[in-house]
Structures are given as C-alpha cells and as structure tokens.
Amino acid sequence: MIRRTLNGRQHHIELDERGFQPVLTWAEKYGAFWGANLESLGEFLMHEKSDER
C-alpha cells in the first residue's frame, strides 16, 4: 500500500489506494447492512406497536 522510491536525497512515499479497497468495501458493506437492519427494526417496532392497540 506504501510505495517508497529514492531519488538521490529525495524520498518519495506514495500511497497506493488499491490496498485499502478491501477495507473500504467492508466498511461500505457493513454501513449499508446495519443501516438496512435499523430500517427493518423500525418496521418491526411499528407493527408491534400497532398490534398492541
């Protein structure tokens, strides 16, 4: 993920974002997963509330 090259006295450090892709994919996946879960919970709670009436 980190590429380092030397050019005389200069050090170039480059970030290769492709290395982060699995992490970002995982975070996006779980962000969507939990968001959808809280929506499902909301629907369930509303049904439960209306059943109580």
């Binding site: 975070a27 809280l38 709670l45 509303m46």
Partner: peptide
C-alpha cells in the same frame, strides 16, 4: 462510515 468503524443511528416512536 469511516475506515475503521461504521456508525448508524435511528429514532423510533
């Protein structure tokens, strides 16, 4: 969504 955590929040009646 940050890189190291996912946070979601919802309000229910």
């Amino acid at each position: 969504t940050n890189v190291d955590e996912v946070k979601v929040s919802a309000w229910y009646a």
